[in-house]
Design a protein around this nucleic acid. Sequence first.
DNA 1: TGATATTTATACCATTTCGCATTAAATTGA
DNA 2: TCAATTTAATGCGAAATGGTATAAATATCA
Lengths: 203, 203
Amino acid sequence: MNARAVRPRGRPRSFDADAAMAQLIDAFWQGGYGATSVDDLARASGLARPSLYAAFGDKHAIYLAALDRVGQGMAAQVGALLDAEPDLATALRAVLRAATDVYLEGALGPRGCLIVCTATAESVEDPVIRAKLADVLDAMDALVAARFERARVEGNLAPGIDPVRRAPLVAATIHSLAVRARAGMDRALLEAMADEAAAVLAR
Amino acid sequence: MNARAVRPRGRPRSFDADAAMAQLIDAFWQGGYGATSVDDLARASGLARPSLYAAFGDKHAIYLAALDRVGQGMAAQVGALLDAEPDLATALRAVLRAATDVYLEGALGPRGCLIVCTATAESVEDPVIRAKLADVLDAMDALVAARFERARVEGNLAPGIDPVRRAPLVAATIHSLAVRARAGMDRALLEAMADEAAAVLAR
DNA sequence: TGATATTTATACCATTTCGCATTAAATTGA
DNA sequence: TCAATTTAATGCGAAATGGTATAAATATCA
């Protein structure tokens, strides 16, 4: 079960890289890219700066890794929720409600989505971040479109609804939930929006 | 027509404050808050730093003023478009198409919305920005809800549609258009989304 | 036990950033 | 013409930032 059969040669790490990365993600999620200094990252992860650089690279690399990890986690969770529910509207509602729950978490207050709410700020002047952002958005659209397509095949979709045209509106609701949560809007409003969207977009 | 009947006492300004503010807005819109330094702002506006401080205050104050001005401009434009079209779906489509056009502009590439794409990044750690962000989002929801209410009164709205529940989904489409534009997505995709949303949400 | 390899901690450096003090310039009013 | 008033430009200094050099610490392997 060990990732490496034998221990590597030198002094072993005194920290868990995965746990440290989770803390790094939290730091960026809360403060965004620009307002989070390398010192902040070191403090958040408990690592000294040289260890941080050695383990994860510079600030930019850490941020990209954070986007990757969060994007993959989101895709996995959304995919699972979409698969689990047999009814389309119910599946959409589950995803939108789950997004609401995630976006309202946060030590300092609701913090929305790392990708939607912090990567966008950088994406004009940073083509690498922009490309990663686009990838995550595309993947989410594709995931939802596939679920609409499944509903169509199963006869669970009203004729005249084009999965590829309709799916982006579901993702749009997710984007807006992220923005609104980070703006401090009430849970009641977000949940009403999630329910309304699930009902309207599935028929 | 002069703003001031008599000229003020000392050395007159050598710059147009409104034009300078427009340049400042552009700088923030492109780079976001964190990545835009005061030097960047000075360069963009053509002002020396002390003049910048004297005229508009510090970076934070300038950013808040930018959010104000952009928010008011958006509200005015959206309000006018919503008022102009007698049919609800057509009015929504006009607003969403106009948003698409604005969000795809930008010297360095499409830059989405200043408020949705840059203020969100700061809004967890900066309560003042968060409050302003919430105000703008609320105002937009209210504007759209009022248009739905007008449609209801005019018999242009299907019964069973609650203006207050439905309006946030229109704003949600706007938020997503902003995010997607800044992620570099194609105009065709944005326009299709705008049209689909206008059609689906109005009935 | 000692050579080798890797991580950690201290501390440093160059650069950027912010904000302002100071001085020069331009205009009005007497 | 000269004092008063306001803006503009130069440039300073403290603090923060990103990144790394160096050396001590901790482990494996022979």
